[in-house]
Design a protein around this nucleic acid. Structure first.
Lengths: 230, 230
DNA sequence: GTCATTTTTACAAAACTCTGACAAGTGGGC
DNA sequence: GCCCACTTGTCAGAGTTTTGTAAAAATGAC
């Protein structure tokens, strides 16, 4: 599955050139030319990295970055900017950017930075197979065999169930957004409806909650997603 | 536990200055002046970040980096270098560096980059939540989980509430205009009536003020908007 | 084809946001 | 100080969006 990049740049030639080169490196690139559109795309799809020009029509890069950070604290954001002084860099970092590249830049350098950022963003996602057994409440889950003893009986978890459950447990205590869930459990190019997630949560509550109306472990956080508590 | 940084730099004055500043930022810094020693320290201890000068006696930064990468693929490495051209940067990335700062550098910029890299390296570790946590008066807000302890009881903030509260706290001490609020919290094409904002402020006061008639934190600035004070 | 699993559909229920009405407050001009 | 115009405070629903739930349809492995 290719890493997906949202590229935001209003200079048409540069946009095309960068897009092409990123695609040659085997990334999937969505290219847009203004800030508002970028935000819409971001809300609509899922990405591993955002490359953001600072000077944009309608909404500048910093603003876009701030808005994105409200929705997703984790996605890496790389700023491009024409001005080279340190203040711009600092502003970029302050609004939540992760890296900064002054124009004109060397293409190879851009590609390398992209690689580094994507590497970070993938870390913790598809990897790390540490957790194999977990107990909570009166329940017990074995992630190797997918066996589970729930308060309402024993069962075997399906693959998706196990993945989702593991994600929630890995992040216990903090809300996991529906987007994060989709990214982790379904990947980047599948778009099941958000109702699908609800159904899995519904199952978990049936398996593991004493009282489905008062869930102790699987909390829904309206507007965000779900949260697992011990 | 403080994040630990291995700082490798042979210019003594710079070494001291950077070490001091990092320590002021509450990092634990181990400073060494040559490459071989750096490698030994790295094998001996555990770090969250390595800051590596390129020009070093006995073994240059690139070599050190390559050696370290053989042992640990994940630890972030930040290069410092005197030469400013893109080729150095590229070489830095090629041997496995994560970021690059040309000398002379602005101190604040270094600190910001360090922060970003450390943030990445800590991701998934037990920490993080602390930075997203804010206390004022007898209140406490966790922006990650949206949990809040108010003087009048605990509660969960909704998405909008969290966004607005974050905006006001980010700009604490200065008035935030209703327009700014609308842009930041609601976006660019939705404009609910100004009464809506009042309602949110009303909620905040209910949650967090001892005496709603004499607000200590959420002040209204007539004709402008609102101001948060600590 | 059959079965288990996953996804969609549809509707109900819940939670949140917004509006409109009116009360209360504020500052300027006199 | 007093009135007026305007801004902000407050509240009760209406309106909207999000989530819960179950059942039907689609998918995919065997």
């Amino acid at each position: 599955m290719k890493p997906r990049i949202l590229l935001v740049e209003d200079e048409e030639h540069l946009l095309e050139a960068v897009k092409m080169n990123l695609e040659l490196e085997d990334y999937e690139v969505v290219a847009v030319a203004d800030g508002e559109l970028a935000l819409l795309k971001f809300k609509d799809q899922r990405f591993n990295l955002i490359i953001l020009d600072v000077m944009l029509p309608r909404m500048d890069g910093y603003q876009v970055c701030e808005q994105i950070r409200l929705l997703d604290m984790d996605i890496p954001i790389l700023f491009l900017t024409a001005k080279g002084d340190s203040n711009d860099k600092i502003k970029g970092f302050k609004v939540g950017g992760d890296d900064y590249l002054p124009k004109p830049f060397n293409l190879e350098e851009l590609l390398l930075r992209v690689k580094v950022l994507i590497k970070h963003s993938l870390k913790g996602t598809a990897e790390e197979g540490s957790l194999k057994n977990y107990k909570f409440g009166g329940n017990e889950v074995n992630f190797l065999t997918h066996e589970a003893k729930g308060v309402n009986g024993d069962l075997l978890l399906t693959k998706r169930e196990a993945m989702l459950l593991k994600l929630l447990i890995d992040k216990k205590g903090e809300p996991v957004s529906r987007n994060q869930i989709l990214q982790y459990v379904w990947g980047y190019d599948v778009y099941p409806s958000t109702r699908t997630i609800d159904n899995f949560i519904l199952s978990f509550r049936k398996y593991f909650e004493e009282d489905m109306k008062e869930p102790q472990h699987f909390h829904s956080i309206r507007g965000i997603g779900y949260k697992f508590t011990d």
